[in-house]
């Protein structure tokens, strides 16, 4: 059904625009979760037209997203311990 694909595109574009304009690292992580969820709804919408493979892939997306969120959050905690701030304008050591 085509409205799910349009919805998935709108959500991914909102999340990408949000990721590249925010300064807070936690909002970037939340935007990545929005992207993963929007791609998952796209997979399930296509899966319901053909066969069940899309749902299986969505299960794998869910598990990998959980692992990635855990690692990302531990990196953010170490970032906060080292820099004492989470402002991306101030964390500039790896930029040009």
């Amino acid at each position: 059904m085509i409205e799910y694909i349009v919805l998935s595109f709108i959500l991914i574009s909102i999340a990408i625009i949000g990721i590249i304009t925010t300064k807070n690292v936690l909002r970037i992580l939340m935007g990545v979760e929005i992207i993963l969820n929007a791609a998952a709804i796209n997979f399930v919408a296509f899966s319901k037209m053909y066969n069940v493979l899309g749902e299986i892939f969505v299960l794998f997306i869910l598990i990998v997203a959980a692992a990635e969120a855990a690692i990302g959050l531990s990196i953010i905690i170490m970032l906060y311990k080292y820099y004492k701030t989470l402002d991306l304008e101030k964390i500039r050591e790896m930029r040009w």
């Binding site: 936690l26 909002r27 979760e33 869910l62 959980a66 969120a69 953010i76 906060y80």
Partner: peptide
């Protein structure tokens, strides 16, 4: 998984390092 585990982890870290913007 998403609401019950990942979102709870994200909220924990937000409460640790809260910041307004």
């Amino acid at each position: 998984i998403y609401v019950g585990a990942i979102l709870v982890l994200i909220l924990f870290v937000i409460m640790l390092v809260g910041k307004e913007e």
